[in-house]
């Protein structure tokens, strides 16, 4: 009570209280400003940016293709020409009759699952046959081979000297590889070659990359001594080559078994021809009955 009386009268206790109360009120206000003014971001949900799409205008569509899942879906390895491919397919009559649009995806091929194959989530898939049969042994009940590129020549490449296929040559070399273990050209074939010449892992310096673009850039900047590639390798500078494998499989394109329409398969092959610059000097085999 004495304290209260004293406070009311502005006595010595109140005087002592003033700095305490003011400091407390100041701190509370600062805290309140911080907590109340603090802003957070919500709905930050970035999508996947590995797909080019085009929609077929309704005027061109047939009447029975408006249901869900009626888009033509292609799973590629690279984003190269994806937009052009989608655009071209959308203009084709055979596509317009069956689909409401075209999606060309380059979702990382290592993310492909057995479920994708069984559910036939993609109409066309660019991948290695061994990889797909590894996921689904009876793959051929679901997918046909549409297009096949083989007799693909893969080379060891160097900017400094012609590679020599000996363990001594490779010793201490920085070798650029893709971290994608399903890559023939940039992972499996160079490792097999090194094994063939009895070069041990400890003798070389492997440098792993997530994508081919940075692999190439590093090669040209001299950050790696050796890498592997085909004839279509983009030659910015003179490159020394030594053949590694003359009969590699470059690429295989699979198509859903249900899509038997001859004209449609031809149109898809035609669209895939946009990737032709990648297959220079590589022989292709189409698996379509009759000529396109």
């Amino acid at each position: 009570m004495r304290f209260l009386n004293d406070w009311r009268q502005g006595g010595r206790f109140a005087a002592f209280l003033r700095p305490v109360v003011l400091s407390g009120a100041g701190i509370i206000c600062l805290l309140a400003i911080f907590l109340l003014s603090r802003q957070t971001s919500s709905a930050v949900e970035l999508g996947h940016y590995y797909e080019h799409s085009c929609d077929i205008p309704s005027a061109y569509r047939a009447t029975d293709n408006s249901g869900p899942g009626s888009r033509l879906r292609l799973l590629m390895v690279t984003p190269a020409m994806a937009a052009d491919m989608a655009g071209l397919l959308c203009e084709r009559e055979s596509v317009q009759q069956l689909f409401t649009g075209v999606d060309v995806s380059w979702r990382p091929r290592t993310e492909l699952t057995t479920g994708d194959l069984v559910n036939e989530n993609y109409d066309v898939i660019w991948n290695r046959e061994h990889f797909l049969t590894g996921l689904l042994p009876d793959l051929h009940n679901y997918y046909d081979i549409l297009l096949h590129y083989d007799n693909y020549a893969v080379f060891w490449l160097s900017l400094q000297s012609t590679p020599v296929m000996t363990a001594e040559y490779f010793r201490g070399k920085r070798i650029g590889l893709l971290s994608d273990v399903s890559s023939h050209t940039h992972h499996l074939l160079p490792l097999r070659s090194l094994r063939t010449v009895n070069s041990h892992q400890n003798d070389i310096i492997p440098v792993y990359f997530d994508d081919t673009s940075t692999l190439y850039d590093s090669f040209y900047r001299g950050e790696i001594d050796l890498m592997t590639g085909g004839l279509a390798f983009p030659a910015g500078q003179p490159v020394h080559r030594t053949l590694l494998d003359n009969s590699a499989t470059a690429a295989t394109f699979f198509i859903r078994k249900d899509l038997q329409q001859h004209e449609l398969r031809c149109d898809i092959i035609d669209a895939l021809e946009l990737l032709a610059p990648l297959w220079q000097g590589i022989k292709s085999h189409t698996q379509v009955n009759g000529d396109c």
């Binding site: 999508g47 390895v77 984003p79 994508d211 081919t212 673009s213």
Partner: peptide, 12 residues
């Protein structure tokens, strides 16, 4: 998102 969309890109 960028890494997956740029994988095997020849023209970034």
């Amino acid at each position: 998102r960028l890494t997956e969309s740029l994988r095997y890109s020849f023209a970034d």
